[in-house]
Design a protein around this nucleic acid. Structure first.
Lengths: 210, 210
DNA sequence: CTACAGTTCAACTGTTCTCTTGATCAGCAG
DNA sequence: CTGCTGATCAAGAGAACAGTTGAACTGTAG
């Protein structure tokens, strides 16, 4: 009984696999793609993906001669988030690592507040994740500007409006980085506290490329 | 970063430790006690508990010459529940094992419905967990009748009211067993779908022994 | 059919995890 | 202090796991 539940936890008991889950929870991806993004060897990546699949956390389908993986359900993303939250809450080590990784506090906006401001139209939203993830689903009206292009494309954003950047989630550094770049460029900027998965889970609308 | 999150998952990646977490989430317990309940050797149990403690999932305190462990926060119990839920949702194997373990469907009542029925007072509630767990916290008005005593103490329960039994949670067999015993004894009986932790988390009141 | 790209499989090495055993440590009772 | 109980520590045998390498499989394109 408990041994069965442990299989799910075992599948998540590896930094590599958590990273894969995180990436795959943003958009459906091929093995090679995932290997590149995470810096693993393809064979190794494939094996980790199969561990996740055997545990039922991801599902795969064939498209031409590549195989695409995605998370098996919204519930799995919830689990991933909760693991990270509890880990952050309970482990001082993780908290320190997270602070170092995110590089200092940055002003943020809650999901709720952004939702309200979106309706009044006095805020511009930027999705700083890789384009593939934007294409798979994004906050309506958001501009796709991958983080490494942001500095060069600052002038695409209106100078007189507050800018909100968002990325994969609380522990993703892209949005923090974006806020720093935007502020250095003289804009008022904040990051969305959470990421796209939480936005989706809260029942807010998502826009996807055709 | 991900390696840090994985430490939390690693701590949960063992059937033994999930079992310990489950027991300890019901009431504070000593090492020896936990070893007895789970059937482990004391030394082994102690080591598993320390893994959980290092991961920040449980905390311990000394009382006389025993050491008592309890879960570190309500959030941890939430995580434990979510792991079980996802595991049950996503793994056919776990689903089968669970069905076999619980021994067939039994009619149940939701937390919400019980809450309403409690107010009108036309239902009698039975806590079929071990007494230590009842003492640590239980649903108001609940009668403590450990599952193995239920059959012998049936007459303590009014014959003209519906009986609701509850236990540790969705995957705990005590309440199902109780419903079968109660029905065999001619009562109208249902189990609470979930267990005490979910009841507490929903913000409902809890009564504890002095 | 052949060549090729993408993915998976199989085998192997080194590491980590699990449980057991016996010793040690901390508090309590006499 | 001595003896006792409860918990932890230390060390070792066996199992499970992670990453690497090279081969095998499966569709696509020519």
């Amino acid at each position: 009984m408990y041994e069965g539940f442990a299989l799910t936890a075992k599948a998540m008991a590896s930094g590599r696999r958590l990273e894969l889950l995180d990436v795959v929870s943003q958009a459906e991806r091929s093995v090679e793609d995932l290997a590149t993004v995470t810096g693993m060897a393809v064979a190794n990546c494939s094996q980790h993906l199969q561990v996740l699949r055997r545990a039922g956390l991801v599902v795969s389908r064939r498209d031409g001669n590549r195989i695409l993986y995605q998370v098996a359900s919204e519930r799995v993303v919830e689990l991933l988030d909760l693991v990270r939250d509890v880990s952050h809450d309970r482990s001082p080590l993780v908290r320190e690592t997270a602070e170092a990784h995110l590089g200092g506090e940055v002003s943020s906006i809650s999901r709720q507040e952004l939702w309200e401001r979106l309706a009044s139209g006095d805020v511009v939203v930027v999705d700083v994740r890789p384009l593939a993830e934007y294409a798979a689903g994004h906050i309506p009206t958001a501009h796709p500007i991958p983080i490494h292009e942001l500095e060069a494309r600052l002038e695409e954003l209106p100078a007189d409006m507050e800018v909100v950047a968002y990325c994969r989630g609380r522990f993703c550094a892209f949005a923090d980085e974006a806020v720093r770049i935007l502020q250095a460029g003289g804009r008022r900027a904040r990051r969305l506290e959470e990421g796209l998965p939480e936005w989706r889970r809260a029942g807010h609308p998502i826009e996807a490329a055709s």
